[in-house]
Amino acid sequence: MTTLFIKTKDTFQGDNTNRVWPLSYPYLSVQDLRVTVINPKGIGACVNKHLRFDSENVCIVYPTLESDLQPLGEGWSICIERQAPICRQIPATDSALLAPEDLTPIEKLARIEEIRAIKHIQKEGV
C-alpha cells in the first residue's frame, strides 16, 4: 500500500497584521515542518525562533507576541513546508496490521475508500 500526500506546503503573503498561519495538509510531527520567511527580494531564511506550533488550531503563530517582532509586512511571505516523505511504502501484508492510531489522516481516508470499494464490488458481484 502506498499513500500519497499531494500537498506539502503553504505560502502566505504578509499583510502587516496577521500572525496566524493555518496548515492545510496532514503532518506526522511538528519536527517535520520547516518555516521559511521570504523578504521582498525573494531571499528566504529558515525560522526556528519566535514561532509557536498550535496543534489545537492546526496552525503556526509567527511572530509570537512575546517576541516583540512586528507581523510580516507587505512584500514579505511565509512558507510552511512538510519535510517528511510524500509517501510511505508499507508492504500489503503489513498494512492490514497497522492500528488506526498509527495511520496518518490521509491513510485513514484511503483505508475507508478501500473498504467502500471492496463492499461495492461484493454488492455488484463484479
Rank of each mutant, 00 (worst) to 15 (best):
I112V: 14
H50I: 04
W21I: 15
N39E: 13
E81P: 00
E101A: 06
K119N: 04
R52K: 08
G125T: 15
T36W: 03
V47E: 13
E81G: 07
L51F: 15
S77Y: 11
N18Q: 13
D10A: 11
H50Q: 05
I78Y: 09
P71L: 01
L103Y: 10
A96Q: 12
K123H: 10
V37E: 13
L23G: 02
P71M: 02
E113Y: 13
A96M: 10
T8R: 01
K49Q: 04
T64C: 01
S95I: 14
T36C: 02
P40R: 10
H120P: 00
Y62I: 01
T2P: 13
N48E: 15
E101G: 09
V30E: 06
P85Q: 04
R82Q: 12
A96H: 13
C46I: 11
R34M: 11
Q122W: 13
T2L: 05
Q83P: 01
G125L: 09
L51G: 13
I86D: 11
L4M: 07
K41L: 15
I90W: 14
S95W: 13
S67N: 07
A96I: 14
S24Y: 07
Q83N: 11
V35F: 10
G75S: 12
G73F: 07
P85Y: 01
F5Q: 14
D32L: 13
K108W: 06
T2W: 06
L103R: 12
I6F: 08
I86E: 10
E81V: 06
I60H: 04
C79R: 15
I60Q: 05
T93Q: 12
A96T: 14
L97N: 04
P71N: 01
Q83A: 12
I78W: 08
R82C: 14
Q83W: 10
T3Y: 09
E101V: 04
P63C: 05
V35A: 00
K108P: 00
A110C: 01
E124G: 00
T11E: 10
Q13N: 09
R34H: 02
N18P: 01
Y27M: 06
K9L: 08
W21R: 10
Y27I: 12
P63L: 05
R19W: 02
E74S: 12
I121N: 14
A45Q: 09
S77L: 12
L98P: 11
N48D: 15
P85K: 01
T8Y: 02
L28V: 00
I78A: 06
L103V: 15
I118K: 07
Q122C: 10
P40D: 08
T11L: 05
N48Q: 15
A84G: 07
G125H: 08
F53Y: 11
L65G: 04
T8K: 00
V35R: 02
M1P: 05
V61T: 11
T104I: 11
D10R: 06
Q122T: 14
C79V: 07
L65H: 09
G42L: 13
V61W: 08
